[in-house]
Amino acid sequence: MRFALAAGDLVAQFKLNFINGDRWKWILQGLLATLEITAVALVIGIVIGVIVAAVRSSYDKNKESMKVRGGIGYALLSAANAVCKVYLTIIRGTPSVVQLLICYFIIFSSWENGVPVAMISFGINSGAYVAEIFRSGIMSVDEGQFEASRSLGFGYLPTMRYVIVPQAFKAVLPALGNEFIVLIKETSIAGYVGIMDLTKAGDLIRGRTFSAFMPLIAVALIYLCLVLLLTWLLGKLERRLRKNER
């Protein structure tokens, strides 16, 4: 086994792994699949996260006063809150690979294409984490902000809209960005259900060329670049938001 690869060797390796048989196209296809799955899962996750966080925090905030009034509203909100809690417990208590396999082989077993299944599975998974991020953001806003708005005559929802959510969003942006980055990397298990994502593409090339170094390092570098790009963009957004307050 030689560790020192000569320059000529490197070029030959590169040709073998990426140029021959147009194998670079696999990488490109895989990258596109990874990006597609991540983007759609992110949207699903945010939608679920917003709804679950809204249910959970309005239940926490209003249960006292609603209990006094009673009625159907309180019953519905309690039920919704219970459903959300079960969802959070299950999703956060099981590995995402297992969730993906259950989605593909049990829940959506009639679907031929794994990509939409992966989008939904990762979206449902991410939703649980996003929900808790949003909820902690809402709770991080000082109670006095809430009381001041209510004392002026704003109801619960307008108070959330004008005062609490804008402050909560700013507070959770770093955590939300982090969840986005986690999600990109988490989609690398998509190969388990026959999807050729970026990771799977690299692995397929490795299996075809019997050389592991080039394809796997290339895949790692692409993930790294994606994450660095995202980190940079999020940093910019955060600075922009902070400047608006000055």
Partner: peptide, 21 residues
């Protein structure tokens, strides 16, 4: 109660101005 609160101003020990505005 929201309608009545419009007519009852309140000032807090901790000020509670809206930080985002």
């Amino acid at each position: 109660i929201n309608l009545h609160r419009q007519k009852i101003g309140m000032v807090f020990q901790q000020f509670n101005l809206f930080n985002n505005l």
